[in-house]
Every structure is written in C-alpha cells, then in structure tokens.
C-alpha cells in the first residue's frame, strides 16, 4: 500500500474553479452573447460601410480599419454593445432625471403605468378566479371570453382601447395601464383558478367534516394553497404588463416612456437609442420579476411553506 492522499489537491486544472459554482457559467454565457453580438454587428454593418468607402472614393481599406469602422457608425443596422452602453450611460447618469432626454425619466413613465396596470390586472385576475372557482355558471360563461381575449393581437386592440377611453374623457396614465391590465390579468386568472382548485380531496373533505362554510374553506384552505401559484403567475403577469405598457405607448404617439423612445428612435433611424431603450426594458422586466421572486420567498418562508 502506498500512501495515497485522500484529498487530491483541488486545482490541478486552472479552469476547474471557473466552471464550479454559478459565476463561471454565467460569465461564459454573457461573454458568448457579447461575442456573437459583435460578430453580428460587424457582419450587418459591413455593406453600409462599403457604401461609405465607395462614395468617398476610398478603395483598398484595410480589413482591420473596416471592422473598426463598422463598430463606430452613427446609425448602424446593429449597434455594437459598447455603443449601446455608452448611450445608456449618457442618457441615465449624465442627464438630469427631469430631462426629456433622460432614459431614467422615460423608464419611470413606463414603470408607473406598468405597475398600475399590474396592480389592477392582478386584482382583477384574483377576483375573476375566485368567481370562477365558486360558480359553475361563471366558469362556463367567463372562461371562453377570458381565453379568447388573449388571442387578439395586443397591437390591434391597443389603439382601440386608447381611442375609446379618450372618447369618454379618460386620458393620461390609465389608458396605458389598461393595456397592461389586459395582458396581465390573464396569467393571474389562470394561475389562481388552478391554485384555488388544487387542494387535495382529503383537505377538502376535512373542511366538510368540520361543516366549514365556503367562506371559511376559502380563507383557511383554498387561498393559502393558491399562494405559490399566485406568485408564479404574478411573475408572468408583471412581464406581460411591461410589454403592455410599451405597446400602449407605440400607437398613441406618446411623447414619453420607453415605447415613445423606441418609436422616436425608429422615426429618426436612431438604432443606438432603440437598442438602449430595449436593453432598459429588459433590465426593468428582470428587476421587477426578481422583486416578485424575493417577495415570494419572504412570504412562503413566513407561511412556513419554504425551509
């Protein structure tokens, strides 16, 4: 028997530490996306760059020069990541929040209608689910409409909602929020119906043996049972709500909000502005969903359902 050390020295492979845990893989994925983005930017911007050279009468431009130039165009087909990052930096940190050119200002506008729509949508979704679970008639009569409401393209119905609400004198935040509501109540309704119906037969029987009223069964059994379902559908609802708010800003010629930013960018061919607004929207959605995730964890822990 030779003395073999029971624990091998850990890092024979210098990269073994990198891929263990989550930091390594996440970094690799991010770097891969950025790399693909740069390659795509070069490829997509090259034809226009060649045009420029041709018009300027320049021939025999070195490849390295051309690659560099494709990444610094003013209105590229696909802006390079660093262009977008610079644009975001300039429009968030270097602009006053009250400025019309501040991305934070526009994000705030969209956020407020997203949150308003989300709150109305979630409330509506929960109320619909409660009705549907407790009444066969409501189930049969409402559910088909609820489902078909989501088959209509939101882009088609958004202008209608804005126009109709404007006609009855409602303008400002609410019409946009209604579009968010329209998108976000659906996942909450479906999730809550599922959640409120999910208690095991035995748990329902138990309530029956106690001669509990439907209201008692709802508060003490159905509702707590549905809480995890509610959070899951709220995450989907939140993302949908943000999409709704942005879409709501598009057809109305809104002057403020991420949607307005996208629209203005496309009018003037400001692709860098479009992409920075898109990234901001993605970041916003991610943060909001993560926030609900934190709330979910805290709530379930408080309820004793998570360890």
């Amino acid at each position: 028997m030779t003395d073999v050390p029971l624990t091998q020295p850990r890092s024979t492979n210098p990269f073994s530490g990198l891929m263990s845990g989550t930091v390594g893989p996440v970094t690799v994925v991010v770097l891969a996306i950025i790399a693909i983005w740069y390659i795509a930017a070069v490829a997509l911007n090259t034809p226009f760059q060649k045009d420029i050279y041709e018009r300027a009468g320049q021939s025999d431009v070195a490849v390295s020069q051309m690659v560099t130039d494709t990444l610094f165009q003013e209105r590229p087909v696909l802006p390079a990541p660093h262009q977008v990052i610079v644009e975001i930096w300039e429009t968030t940190v270097e602009k006053k929040i009250t400025s019309k050119r501040s991305l934070v200002y526009h994000t705030g506008i969209t956020l407020s209608s997203t949150l308003m729509g989300f709150l109305i949508g979630t409330t509506l979704g929960i109320l619909l689910a409660i009705g549907i679970v407790h009444s066969r008639v409501l189930d049969k009569s409402l559910m088909p409409w609820i489902i078909s409401s989501q088959t209509i393209p939101i882009l088609a119905i958004a202008p209608m909602i804005i126009v109709v609400l404007n006609a009855v004198g409602i303008s400002g935040l609410l019409p946009k929020a209604m579009i968010s509501t329209y998108l976000s109540f659906f996942p909450v309704t479906v999730g809550m119906v599922k959640g409120l119906r999910s208690p095991e037969v035995m748990h329902m029987d138990l309530m029956h043996t106690y001669s509990a009223t439907r209201l008692q069964a709802f508060w003490k059994l159905r509702l707590p049972y549905a809480v995890p379902y509610l959070f899951t559908s709220m995450k989907i609802g939140m993302a949908a709500s943000l999409v709704g708010a942005i879409v709501g800003e598009l057809p109305t010629g809104a002057v403020a909000g991420l949607g307005a930013r996208l629209l203005a960018g496309s009018y003037y061919g400001q692709t860098v502005q479009i992409w920075s607004a898109l990234l901001m929207a993605a970041f916003l959605a991610g943060s909001l969903v993560a926030l609900i995730g934190v709330l979910e964890k805290l709530t379930l822990k408080r309820m004793g359902m998570a360890q």
């Binding site: 035995m202 138990l206 043996t209 059994l221 809480v227 004793g304």
Partner: peptide, 17 residues
Amino acid sequence: RAYGYVFQAAALYPWRT
C-alpha cells in the same frame, strides 16, 4: 360536530404549525 375524522394521511396544512 358529533364526530372527529382521521384520514389515511395526516392531511395537516403545511402552512400551519
């Protein structure tokens, strides 16, 4: 409430102590 019923499984509510 003349009887107490005990089921095959404990059927305790997981969110209650």
